[in-house]
Structure formats: structure tokens, C-alpha cells
Simulated assay, not measured.
Amino acid sequence: MRFIDAAHKAPSVGFMQPWRFVRVTDPGLRQEMHAHVDQERINTAEALGNRAEEFMRLKVEGMLACAEVLVVGLIGQRDGYVFGRRTMPEMDLASAACAIQNFWLAARAEGIGVGWVSMFDPARIRELCHMPIDSQPIAILCVGHVDAFYPAPMLEIERWDRRRLIQEIVFENSWGNTGLTV
């Protein structure tokens, strides 16, 4: 609850607080969700083509091994929130991502690991968790003690991709103008 409290103190556009947390305590529900995520993992591997085998070797979810599983979803009827969303309706998702980051940082400060699972069909997770039809599941969080934290993101260590240099992500006055001196 301390981590959820930290999440709930996150900034949100228009103070809409669009996040909701479903704590998954039923072992059968966790098994069903895991089976669904595992199938989506296979589907993702197939979509990756020549990187499929490399992908399948990565540890990308720990739903059965972790202490807690939480589903994070966006509330329904979000169209009623116009403040800060009139031209950018996706700010509800950005606000919920801030809440998840607050959760993650609070957990990390206490030595607890968090994994963000995103390989799922939102409609299936919505159905499994009996969420309102107009809500949107955005994350499955796997939370628990870990033996050790990676010294860098696991996907970076495994050379799935590399962290971009600051000069590649900060521009001056116009997109692509890399006149930045670091």
C-alpha cells in the first residue's frame, strides 16, 4: 500500500487521477493471466522474425514467481476530462505512467523489484479482471524481492538495444539540431 500511495500522489493532467489498481490475489486468476501473457510472448517472438530466438531467451515476465501482481488500468469515461486533454487526449496515459513510475521508485527505494508486463491483449485482461468495458488496462506489475538489481537495464546488458547518447535525444531550437554541448 505504501507503493500504491506513492503512485496515487503522482502528478496528473487536470488532476484527473485516471489510474486504478487491481490487486491479483487469486492464484487461478494469476495462472490465467500468465497463460495469456505467455501466449502473447510467443506471438511477439513470431512477429520479431529473425530475432525470435534471441527474444525467447530474455526474461521478460515473472508473474508466477513474484510476490504481488497488480493490473493498472485507466478509468472509463475519460472523455469527460477536458482540462489538459482537449488537444492531447493521451495525457491520461501519460498521467498513469507517472503513477507507475512513482510506484516503481518507491519500491526500488525499499529494495523491492518491479517488472512492467505489457505483452497482453487489453480486452482479455479487462475481461479477466472484470473491469468496466470503457476502462483500459495498461500494465501488469510484478512486484517482489529480488536477489539483486541489474547494474543496467537487462535489455541493455543483453544487447537487445543500446541507451541513446544525450546528444541523440536533446535538440536545440528545432528537431534534429544537435548543437548541444554536453
Rank of each mutant, 00 (worst) to 15 (best):
M1C: 12
M1W: 15
R2M: 13
F3T: 14
A6L: 03
A7Q: 14
A7L: 09
K9I: 00
V13D: 00
F21G: 12
E32K: 15
M33A: 11
H34Q: 01
H36T: 12
H36V: 09
Q39N: 13
E40R: 15
E40D: 05
I42F: 06
E46H: 07
A47I: 14
L48I: 14
G49A: 10
A52E: 11
E53Q: 09
F55Q: 15
M56T: 13
M56Y: 15
E61W: 08
L64N: 10
A65I: 04
A67N: 06
V69P: 07
L70I: 12
L74I: 14
I75E: 11
I75F: 02
D79C: 06
G84F: 09
R86Y: 03
T87L: 08
P89C: 11
M91T: 05
A96V: 10
A97D: 00
C98T: 02
I100D: 00
N102A: 01
N102S: 04
N102G: 01
A106T: 01
A107F: 00
G111Y: 07
G113Y: 03
W116D: 05
W116F: 07
A123T: 10
R124K: 11
I125Y: 12
E127H: 08
E127C: 06
C129N: 02
H130C: 13
M131E: 08
M131S: 03
P132L: 07
I133R: 06
D134P: 13
D134Y: 13
S135P: 05
S135W: 06
S135R: 04
I140N: 01
L141Y: 01
C142R: 02
V143L: 05
V143D: 04
G144C: 15
G144H: 15
V146Y: 03
D147R: 01
P151Q: 00
A152F: 04
L155T: 10
E156P: 00
E156R: 05
I157L: 14
E158D: 14
E158W: 13
D161L: 06
L165Y: 12
I169T: 14
V170K: 03
G176D: 09
T178K: 12
T178E: 15
G179I: 11
